[in-house]
Design a protein around this nucleic acid. Structure first.
Lengths: 188, 188, 188, 188
DNA sequence: GATGAATGAGGTTTCATTCAT
DNA sequence: AATGAATGAAACCTCATTCAT
């Protein structure tokens, strides 16, 4: 991908996590990316397109990062723990991406069928984890969407609050939180 | 509270849930509320103030609704279930308020200490629930903030997705989700 | 009509005759009219609308001026002469209106049926003149549109060239030109 | 003349007749001409120069086409008729050139003396026609500019309206119009 | 108190022009 | 000679805010 395009996307991501959608202007993006305002329009149709492409960009990044160091032959719990922590680290260490993810949920949605199809693919490993767990009778028999909300969403949510200083999460608490999320989907 | 002020707040809330923060203008608010644009400035310093006061307004509403039909002498599980469902209903039945709540988290933060203090008070019943549960050794010994993320946040999150049609939650799944959230914070 | 709206229309007309369509900006119009740029948008949807409304405004003016001092009981030649000179005077004395009229013919057309209907009405007296002349066997049996091009258009065209200094038209030449236009439509 | 330069001029002409002066950009011209934007600046100083050179280009074309099949030893009326129809055909058959000519009259004028001198030369045959006619006492003793407006301008004007569908001109009407224009300048 | 016309700074976007390749 | 990515000034338009009524 063109160097300039990447810089524009990264600048947008950074500003987005800092100011939210309202409050960032194309001029700000241009300045942050170190390009002229007009240059943005060589790579993006308009502001909306920039946002949508960023959405896609981040989604790809999240999907990749989320599945990092996870292979389908690892034990279920190990896979879960790794993904949970991948999620946590994205939000707390890398800074922007996941933080901003919270923002995307309030967008003029781009719920094209392709987009949904893509999202499914991106999170394939998560789906396989839940599917296997349910097949083994280990997990509660719920839709993957729901299992995801119960066990992974709290990771992102907690990370956001931790990063924003709303609450502090110690290492012990972190381990306990992972355990709690595991408990949530486990068949007791 | 003045009739006009209430109408302005309600108009803002409605528009907010529909268009997001960017994309609503003071003129739109005025028109929706049935007042003149200038009138808004009798009750609010500026747009920011309007948004902050709305935040507070909704927070109060949520706190009240959240604790509805909950008294401290009810069994813990019953209190939990009621609050979980209160949360669910706010987002799925009332429409705007909670849905838009997702938007508030991306505001130029008003994290003044007073605001945090206020939020604490508003959610006092939730705190008491968690405190009692931990005292009885029933709940995991974690901060209330964390317990809240683990057990109540999924309600709001699920409700949002359900209301937006991203996933469908049957009555049975709903009951199972409540149970799962309870499992999450329970000492096993 | 609002004072401001009139001032904006007049400013646009003046600038249009001076710079043509390209080369006038909303800022220029605002400055010339002595209003803020944003004010224009209280009275006009956008630049296009401003142009279209101006078109209509000028058309009305032209139609009124064109028929000035003309009544249907005057002799045909006298009516013709008066209208021919009305046209001439609009372009040479008043300055802007007719000069700019040349510009409107190159617009993204607003050829709505209503618009065409309106134009017909506006130039009713011209039509009556031609109709009577043909009924008397005095004029050539041609469409009014064509008769108009042959006998009145030259007035506007000549006036434009005269006003722009492209050619000079003496009083004698003017009388001769009127006579020539009359000759053009006369049955010989 | 360079192939590229010709293509650029022709592209400009085509776009001009379609969009008018405002509404064509150098990028559009480049695309239509099949060259890079920067290439235009090898042949033209700037946009203004492009427009002026196009003006000249078209003027030459019109002058050539106007005098086509006209020689000074043909009878006056025959010469007149031929030129009148040449004008008519340019606007109705060739499409762009003359139609757009209407646009040139609203340009940031390039009324340099040389330009006017040039125009005189280009339309020499027309001048000779009028001069001879006046010398023979056949035409009215008016400036050639005026005679031209009276007798040839209506051809262009009518053609424009015909091509734009504003009015329809049958073959009979066309002949009558020519006759009428001839009547206009004839000494009666 | 209430209004809404008016403001003008600032938003998004376009486009004539340049310049490294 | 030719390209086309990049520029940034300036275009059109919006909108938070003010103020005379």
């Amino acid at each position: 991908m063109s160097d300039k395009k990447t810089r524009i996307l990264e600048a947008t991501e950074k500003l987005l996590s800092q100011y939210g959608f309202h409050g960032i202007s194309m001029q700000m993006v241009a300045k942050e990316a170190g390009v002229a305002a007009g240059t943005i329009y060589r790579y993006f149709d308009d502001k909306n397109d920039l946002l949508h492409q960023l959405h896609h960009h981040i989604l790809s990044y999240v999907a990749e990062k989320l599945s990092q160091n996870v292979s389908d032959d690892m034990p279920l719990k190990c896979r879960f723990r790794t993904m949970w922590l991948n999620l946590w680290e994205m939000a707390t260490q890398d800074g922007a991406p996941l933080l901003t993810r919270g923002q995307f949920e309030n967008l003029p949605r781009s719920d094209s069928p392709e987009q949904q199809q893509l999202e499914k693919q991106l999170f394939a490993k998560v789906d396989r984890l839940f599917d296997e767990g349910k097949a083994q009778g280990l997990f509660k028999p719920l839709d993957n969407d729901i299992l995801s909300v119960l066990s992974l969403e709290p990771s992102a949510c907690l990370a956001r609050k931790h990063a924003n200083g709303i609450c502090t999460v110690t290492d012990d608490a972190l381990e306990a939180a992972i355990e709690a999320c595991w408990d949530a989907i486990l068949q007791h």
